[in-house]
Design a protein around this nucleic acid. Structure first.
Lengths: 231, 231
DNA sequence: CCCCGGACTTGAACATGTTCAAAACATGGA
DNA sequence: TCCATGTTTTGAACATGTTCAAGTCCGGGG
């Protein structure tokens, strides 16, 4: 479930190298959290880690890639907390709600920091983009979470929809993240409100997906996804 | 309809100043289009404009704000082309399709360039974010376009939905833009396919919005929007 | 005509992400 | 022990966005 994606400039060959790499990421995380991404300089990171600037670049291709550690941390922590929700809840709505709220809880302490480096993740060409080739592993892991949400639940769905639903729910999470990043309300209250309202809606749509009218719309949606993949 | 948002460091007092400002934006646009955003340096822009670097900063707060001109250009051009679609089409689907396709057509020549500076627009704190205070004018103008789409069409809608639909359609456009920015297919074929498929779906949903089942979902959606505004 | 105040312009200086050639270090084999 | 080779580390140099103190220009008042 962990699926660490280490975008390393050079792979660590020796234990000592691994140690150095670790020291650098820890120093970076510490400063990023304390001063924010933009105000933390590479020189400061190097100094905090007791290492030269060039050495940081020996292990990490750029300042951006240093936040991969942060990325991975949230990912694994989310998987961890989501697991406990998935272990106890059985209804679709409760499971979905648990996984989404787990994300908000995990990410909350880093809201400000996330807002600062979000632009890097938004760049289509960046390896940190959730849609990038390099993020495939983390993306699959995250989608896997939503597959569990669906599979372990009481939902009755047409097979085609059941197959695609995890992808759609992951996409929804991306939407929530987008909203969350822009959310400057205290404790990201608006994001929580969003989740609170959206989950029952999704639940209702899913349950109605067999009714004739809704069925047609769902079929359109599935056709859309298939079409986009093939173009 | 134009609503030019000029984020200027210093307002231009004299005609000569206005001339200089113009020269700089034109040089910047030329180089951005030719070499891309990242590979165009401020020094190159200054030189192309026959001006000093400091002078560019007298008129523009940063390299980012130079692309405001580009932003405005797309906005006005879109309004222009959309108007002709709105003048001829009468059905909701055709009007919506016309406006969205107009955007794709207008933006196409700048797809690569847009991908490069998209990250700036994605940053929540940036004035170039479509959700920012500074973009309010352009945003309202754009939403106005979708108000026309709805109002001039043959759609029968509950008043509450009719009021909110333009906002929702604008949000949908943001989604299309997000997709488009990540779309590296030839001529952005996938984005066109997306629009082609999504428009009939939206049309169908809108037309079904009075039926009992769909009605409930739409009400939920409207309640969500109201709730988020008040939190 | 001269001078003053403000608008405009300049280019050197600064901050910071990134690169690179060279040095230091480690390790296994002669 | 010493060398060869590959790994790790260094810090100065570079590229580029941004700032700033100082200069130039210009119009209006004396």
């Amino acid at each position: 479930m962990t699926t660490l994606i280490t975008v390393s400039h050079q792979p660590a060959r020796s234990p000592k190298a691994e140690q150095t790499r670790q020291t650098i990421t820890e120093a970076a995380m510490r400063l990023f959290r304390r001063d924010g991404y933009d105000r933390t300089t590479m020189r400061a990171i190097a100094q905090e880690a007791g290492v030269s600037v060039g050495n940081a670049y020996y292990y990490f291709a750029s300042k951006d890639t240093l936040i991969q550690a942060f990325y991975d941390g949230i990912q694994t922590e989310h998987a961890h907390r989501a697991a406990s929700a998935l272990a106890t809840e059985t209804t679709f709505a409760a499971r979905l709600h648990g996984v989404l709220r787990a994300w908000l809880d995990v990410a909350e302490p880093d809201h400000e920091f996330a807002g600062q480096f979000f632009r890097n993740a938004a760049q289509p060409t960046s390896p940190l983009s959730p849609f990038s080739e390099e993020s495939a592993g983390a993306r699959e892991a995250s989608i896997g979470l939503y597959r569990q949400v669906v599979d372990g639940s009481d939902l009755k769905l047409a097979p085609a929809l059941r197959r695609e639903l995890p992808d759609l729910l992951w996409l929804m999470q991306m939407g929530v993240v987008l909203f969350w990043v822009h959310d400057d309300s205290a404790g990201q209250a608006r994001s929580h409100a969003l989740v609170e309202k959206v989950v029952p809606m999704v639940d209702r749509i899913a349950r109605l997906s067999c009714l004739p009218v809704v069925r047609g719309l769902v079929d359109d949606l599935l056709a859309l996804m298939v079409a986009l993949r093939s173009v």
